[in-house]
């Protein structure tokens, strides 16, 4: 099938290829939205890609006080990793260093999954014997004394093995400002989709990579086929009208969440149109041989 044209934009006849991952989620609350987001942003910092960060993490949703366990403003943060052990390690390090330390914070399970990960039941040792266990209804909390009162932390959170990492699409534009506008529109739309995160800076990756490289030890390296400055000298994927490409990488709690996020993002890019945004949309894959999950762009159109 040839490439499609929608709203004056070219949609490549290709697909995104994604992988199974392990994921968990927590709900962070604080006295104000500002401090809930601060704790959430801090704990999901340096968590863009499992290649170098050990996990991928970002805020899934902002929660109003009516939707949190303690009636304060909160954020749901999702964390993705390739294995359960690494996910557990990243969760405890990040909550221990970034949420426990954040003024007024509290931390709750954000997912009910097939298995449990330790949360408060490991962080409680910070209490040095003064921690208090409380079972309230069917939930178990630890209260850990800190300098502004107590850090309340649920004992465990859930783990899901149904998570999907690496859903993606490329927005291609005539200049970098238009590419950024299109990508920002996509990120804003995906922000409304529950269970999906975009872990790169502001949700956007400009250094989409290929696997391996010519230098020994490089796991990933420049994707020269999509680099506009190499358009003439390599077998480029870019036509003469493209001068900037940005990638949106999506991790989701489920296959459906990734698909919903891709649809929402692509819809936003198409609605922005080719004059102010992207002239072409494509996606990254490995020929369909490596990933378990395939998202054809033609199925993701609004």
């Amino acid at each position: 099938m040839p490439n499609m044209s929608v709203n004056g934009m070219t949609i490549d006849d290709t697909f995104a290829e994604a992988f199974g991952m392990r994921a968990t989620a927590i709900v962070i609350t604080a006295p104000s939205r500002k401090w809930a987001r601060q704790a959430a942003i801090t704990m999901s910092g340096f968590a863009t890609s499992v290649i170098g960060c050990g996990c991928e993490a970002a805020i899934d949703l902002d929660l109003p006080p009516s939707a949190t366990p303690d009636g304060r403003p909160g954020c749901r943060v999702m964390i993705f990793a390739m294995g359960t052990d690494e996910l557990q390690k990243q969760l405890l390090n990040r909550v221990g260093q970034c949420v426990l330390t954040s003024p007024g914070s509290a931390c709750f399970a954000g997912l009910q999954g097939s298995a449990e990960l330790k949360l408060g039941s490991a962080l409680r040792y910070f209490g040095d014997g003064w921690q208090i266990s409380k079972k309230i209804g069917d939930r178990h909390f630890w209260r850990i004394p800190v300098m502004d009162g107590e850090f309340l932390c649920e004992a465990t959170t859930g783990l899901t093995k149904e998570a999907v990492g690496g859903g993606n699409f490329f927005v291609m534009a005539q200049n970098s400002a238009n590419a950024l506008a299109a990508a920002e529109a996509a990120v804003a739309a995906i922000g409304m989709v529950p269970g999906a995160i975009v872990p790169f800076p502001g949700g956007i990756a400009r250094s989409g990579s290929k696997i391996g490289g010519k230098y020994k030890g490089m796991i990933a390296s420049a994707n020269e086929a999509y680099a506009p400055t190499l358009r003439g000298v390599v077998a480029s994927e870019l036509g003469p009208d493209i001068n900037a490409v940005l990638e949106i990488v999506i991790d989701g709690e489920t296959n459906d969440a990734v698909a919903a996020a891709m649809k929402a993002g692509i819809k936003a890019v198409i609605e922005l149109g080719p004059k102010r945004g992207a002239v072409r949309i494509s996606a990254g894959n490995y020929g369909g041989k490596l990933g378990k999950f395939i998202y054809s762009l033609k199925d993701m159109l609004p």
Partner: peptide
């Protein structure tokens, strides 16, 4: 001090 535990138990 401000207590999240108090909020949780009150709501429960």
């Amino acid at each position: 001090p401000e207590s999240v535990f108090a909020a949780i138990i009150d709501r429960h």
